[in-house]
């Protein structure tokens, strides 16, 4: 996997039990750019992002069909190991979820250790690099042995990003990463996302349309399990091509 992987989604369907929640999504996600997924609650945006690293099928009753091509490889090919997929595509969730019993250092090193890395020097170097990329190093470098749960909410979320980056993914998925953060931590997170897109393909689900406008290069609008429109963010927020998109971004429905 290279760092410049874009994602090509073809005819992606998803279900929760009998409920059909994604209705054949066709979408290209640009490499080394931020793509925001917006839409009202229940439109399928979180399900969509979870299909990109095969996490949707972990939920009881969750299943998906179609193709998600990363670097030409179909993540839904029966021969592909979903655990390997999840290791290569980092994910950050709504609520910061550091491993509570682990130190800051061990939180970031966890993925590497699972991958069999034992060399102390490599671990230290990679942890420092991941924390620097997550804009957290300067704040925690003197307290790497402290519990990850003792950090502030914004720091915990950046710790989770560092944990995701440590295994060197090509893609970073973020599901409402700022919704539990205060405005200052949110600004720090948005600045971080802006910097990370030089190295990673980022997909972010957000309810906050101003945030989508501020951080993303492309915006996709989902409604009732369908992709209504995807375009450059500046176009979506100045002159969207679709009336439903315009009604949603201007707050006239949803």
């Amino acid at each position: 996997m290279t760092m410049a992987d874009g994602i090509l989604v073809r005819q992606l369907h998803a279900w929760f039990g009998q409920v059909h929640v994604l209705h054949g999504i066709d979408l290209a996600i640009a490499p080394l750019a931020v793509t925001a997924i917006i839409g009202p609650s229940g439109c399928g945006k979180s399900t969509f992002i979870r299909c990109l690293n095969r996490m949707h099928e972990v939920v009881p009753g969750g299943r998906a069909s179609g193709q998600v091509l990363l670097n030409g490889e179909d993540l839904y090919d029966p021969t592909v190991d979903p655990v390997q997929i999840r290791r290569g595509i980092g994910m950050v969730f709504q609520k910061p979820n550091p491993f509570p019993t682990m130190s800051v250092f061990e939180n970031v090193a966890a993925g590497l250790r699972l991958g069999g890395v034992r060399n102390r020097g490599i671990l230290q170097g990679t942890v420092e690099q991941a924390l620097r990329q997550a804009a957290l190093w300067d704040e925690v470098k003197d307290q790497l042995g402290k519990s990850g749960a003792s950090l502030s909410g914004g720091q915990q979320q950046r710790l989770c990003i560092a944990r995701a980056l440590a295994v060197r993914p090509g893609v970073l998925l973020m599901d409402e990463p700022c919704s539990a953060l205060d405005p200052i931590s949110t600004l720090a997170m948005e600045e971080l996302i802006f910097q990370l897109k030089d190295r990673y393909t980022i997909v972010i689900v957000t309810h906050n349309m101003q945030q989508a406008a501020r951080v993303s290069d492309f915006t996709a609008f989902f409604y009732m399990g369908a992709l209504i429109e995807i375009d450059e963010t500046r176009k979506i927020f100045t002159s969207p091509g679709n009336k439903q998109t315009e009604d949603y971004v201007t707050g006239r429905f949803g």
């Binding site: 101003q210 406008a213 927020f237 100045t238």
Partner: peptide, 9 residues
């Protein structure tokens, strides 16, 4: 109100 799209225009 931070208007967008047709409202911004």
């Amino acid at each position: 109100a931070q208007p967008v799209a047709v409202d911004l225009r």
